[in-house]
Design a protein around this nucleic acid. Structure first.
Length: 291
DNA sequence: TGCCAGGCGGATT
DNA sequence: AATCCGCATGGC
């Protein structure tokens, strides 16, 4: 087993980063995922899998004050830097956000939460599964997909499963996926996995944000909201503001001028209200705070 | 019990 | 282009 430490250069809170409904790829071996939200998780360990040079790897991390300690099958520092966006300058990002009560309270409540940068295919499947579903259950679906279809990886005396590749998931039948409690999302996941296995790359999108959002909707089960989640939590479009039920309620209540009827127009208005370039950061704080 | 959850695809208008 | 409807599942 390899071990290491990453010194954190700015505000960082591991628990809110991985338990805020951006990523469904991290687990808590203590079994307390999504408990005690709003209370700092202290030094809890988290685990995930990653592909490093195409090979499945296991990552295990915990935060101790201003350090991230890790244990892994591989050298984990560069992977963690990317996946947890460790170089994001949080104070500078917050400075672009409006200074109203909701935004201020949300940032204060979870200060240190970073956006994540999940790999595109797992992020895409996760958010296809997210339709009309609660956060903890979306997470459970990803666990079951790994167990059922992912490549086994030995680490620290236990067997882990990497997130299934598009090819592995493309072999799944609708019935097998329904047996994992995916419900009506089962054919969406199967058909999208087949598209990606056949060469459609969800990570290959236009540079223009709205064009990129439109491009992602070619995958089955991906509308504008799911596309925005993938753009924000995997593809680095930090201006993306996913309009889910929670944020729509928030817009009605606190930013009624931003309700422009259609998704595209409302999205544009709230994106501007949230400061443009990093609007997705503010949306993610608001979502986690209000949920 | 009935409602709702990080919505979407397809049909209808 | 906008609107309506059906769709699984489980927690409250």
């Amino acid at each position: 087993m390899e071990r290491g430490v990453v010194e954190l250069s700015g505000p960082f809170d591991l628990q809110s980063t991985v338990e805020s409904g951006q990523s469904y790829l991290w687990d808590r071996p203590d079994g307390r995922m999504y408990e005690e939200t709003g209370v700092h998780g202290g030094d809890a360990w988290y685990e995930t899998t990653a592909r490093v040079d195409g090979e499945p790897a296991v990552l295990r991390i915990r935060q101790v004050d201003d350090r991230l300690e890790w244990e892994s099958t591989v050298e984990a520092t560069p992977v963690l830097r990317e996946r947890l966006r460790l170089d994001d300058d949080l104070p500078a990002i917050r400075a672009t956000a409006p200074d109203d009560d909701i935004v201020r309270d949300a940032y204060d409540a979870y200060w240190g939460m970073h956006l994540v940068c999940d790999p595109p295919f797992p992020s895409l499947i996760s958010f296809i599964c997210s339709a009309q579903m609660r956060v903890s259950r979306i997470h459970g679906m990803q666990e079951r997909l790994r167990e059922a279809f992912g490549t086994p990886v030995e680490f620290d005396g236990e067997t882990y499963h990497a997130y299934p590749t598009p090819e592995q998931l493309a072999t799944a039948s609708e019935e097998e996926l329904r047996d994992l409690s995916l419900g009506y999302r089962a054919p969406y996941v199967r058909d999208t996995a087949r598209l990606v296995a056949d060469g459609e790359d969800p990570g290959d999108v236009p540079e223009d944000y709205e064009a990129a959002r439109e491009a992602l909707t070619r995958f089955v089960g991906v509308g504008q909201k799911v596309a925005d989640c993938v753009l924000l939590f995997s593809l680095g479009f930090l201006e993306a503001v996913p309009l889910d039920t929670w944020i729509r309620t928030t817009i009605e209540e606190y930013y009624p001028d931003c309700d422009r009827g259609t998704y595209a127009d409302t999205s544009r208005a709230i994106r501007t209200a949230f400061g443009g370039e990093y609007a997705g950061y503010t949306q993610t704080y608001a979502f986690h705070y209000l949920r």
